[in-house]
Computed example of a mutant assay.
Amino acid sequence: MFKFTKPKWDVIKDKKVYETPIFSLHEKKVQPDDGTDAANFYVLNAPEWINVIALTDDNDVVLVEQYRHGVDETTLEIPGGMVDEGEEPIDAAKRELLEETGFESGSWENLGKVSSNPAILSNFTHIFLATHCEKTSPQQTDGHEDIKVHSMPLKEFLNFANEDVVHHSIVLAGVAKFLLKYPNMA
């Protein structure tokens, strides 16, 4: 096991600067462990997120296509979303898969978690594998979600990830977790 050698810095002050329905911006004054002057850093506190690699019995992966405001582009991703307050990540994964795609699975595996972006985000994204997925209902999107569902062979999706058609970093982290556990699936 890796042994970390850099100690945590002491948080002297944590001030909420701005609040949105999705995250809050915090200004944190921290003291480095080397005794140098304290400095201010900015952190987005966000809820936990989930992503789902959803495979059908034909080894097709269920994907979502949607417009993303941050990059001002339409993206191709695996289903995902926020974990609601009081909800377990696995329950959020099942809910999001059904809402975004209309697919369900009775076979779930936790592939682990990744730091969403540890430089500025406080949360983790939990990655799940759902196998034997079946379309059981229409999409149940909420609010301003405009999602088109796609299903394609896993190898085609992996090629898209390799060719930068799929470029969402957390999706690619999920793909990496999946391939580290199941290298023969590539």
Rank of each mutant, 00 (worst) to 15 (best):
K177V: 11
Q139M: 02
N40E: 13
L180C: 09
Y42G: 01
K28A: 09
V17N: 00
K113E: 10
M82P: 02
I22N: 14
K29H: 13
Y67C: 10
V149C: 13
N162S: 01
E85F: 07
K155Q: 15
G112P: 15
V11D: 11
L129S: 02
F157D: 03
R68M: 13
V166P: 03
A54S: 09
K6C: 02
M185T: 10
E134Q: 12
N110W: 09
V165M: 08
E73A: 03
F124C: 02
H144S: 07
N162A: 02
D58H: 03
T141L: 04
V61W: 01
V43L: 14
H150D: 05
A39L: 15
V166H: 04
P7L: 01
L76D: 09
L154G: 03
W108A: 10
H132W: 05
G106H: 06
V17K: 06
S24L: 03
N159G: 07
V62D: 07
N51T: 01
T5R: 13
K113A: 08
D58L: 03
T74N: 13
G70E: 05
H132Q: 11
E100V: 05
L180I: 07
E65W: 05
K13C: 02
F128Q: 01
K177Q: 15
F4D: 04
N51L: 02
A39Y: 15
P47V: 10
E99Y: 14
D91V: 00
V52P: 03
M1R: 07
S115W: 03
S115G: 02
V61K: 06
E100F: 00
V171M: 13
N110E: 15
Y67E: 09
D57Q: 05
E19T: 11
L179I: 13
S24N: 03
S115K: 06
K6G: 04
K29R: 15
E100T: 07
E19Q: 13
K148V: 08
H168L: 07
L63F: 06
A161F: 08
P47W: 08
A119D: 08
D34I: 11
T20I: 08
W49K: 08
L180M: 12
I90T: 02
I53E: 01
I78Q: 11
A173E: 08
I90H: 04
V11G: 10
L97N: 09
K177W: 10
N110Q: 07
H167Q: 12
K155D: 15
T74H: 12
P79Q: 15
L180A: 12
W108L: 11
K181I: 07
K94W: 01
I53N: 04
L172F: 07
T74G: 07
N59E: 12
P47D: 09
D142M: 08
K8Q: 14
G80E: 00
V175E: 04
D60M: 11
M82Y: 03
V171K: 12
G35A: 08
K13D: 04
V43A: 06
D142F: 07
D164Q: 14
H168M: 06
E134V: 10
Q139I: 06
V114Y: 05
H132N: 14
E85C: 04
G174V: 15
K3R: 04
V64P: 13
I90V: 11
F23Q: 09
E109W: 00
N51G: 00
L44P: 00
H168E: 12
T36H: 13
